[in-house]
Design a protein around this nucleic acid. Structure first.
Length: 121
DNA sequence: GACCTGACGCCCC
DNA sequence: AGGGGCGCCAGGT
């Protein structure tokens, strides 16, 4: 047994769960949002941080990832500074009729969507 | 290796 | 109600 995993294995694993995160994020309905924790739970990732880590690299993805629909569990736009401009995340949400005040979604309970609502995934 | 730092979240004041 | 501590995993230094 090799004491160390080949780096190719690690790379493909990352590729794998990055894509899973992107796929779930793409399934968030327009006008709804999900959270880092909900996506991590759904995918069985050990930590919600890994979702943030994956989304941090989502601009490398082949197809568009609606990352503005992922917020923290309090509805705060914790990732907004990683968009092209600091206000872009809020603008995208407002374009979907989501109300944002002080970088926080006001009606979080009514727009929250959990991936386990998916029927066949 | 030993830190440190995250697009996080739970627990406990 | 809001803030600190800590676990979580990955990367950088």
């Amino acid at each position: 047994m090799p004491t160390k995993k080949p780096s190719a294995t690690k790379d493909t694993f990352e590729q794998h769960y990055f894509e899973k995160v992107y796929d779930v994020t793409r399934l968030i309905p327009r006008g709804k949002v999900s959270t880092y924790g909900a996506i991590a739970d759904f995918l069985g990732l050990g930590s919600a941080r890994m979702v943030g880590w994956a989304l941090n690299h989502c601009h490398h993805a082949e197809d568009h990832v609606p990352a503005h629909r992922v917020v923290n569990r309090l509805g705060e736009l914790s990732g907004r500074l990683h968009f092209a401009t600091p206000d872009l995340m809020q603008k995208r949400l407002e374009d979907e009729n989501i109300i944002v005040v002080n970088n926080k979604i006001s009606n979080m309970a009514s727009v929250f969507w959990h991936p386990r609502e998916l029927e066949n995934y």
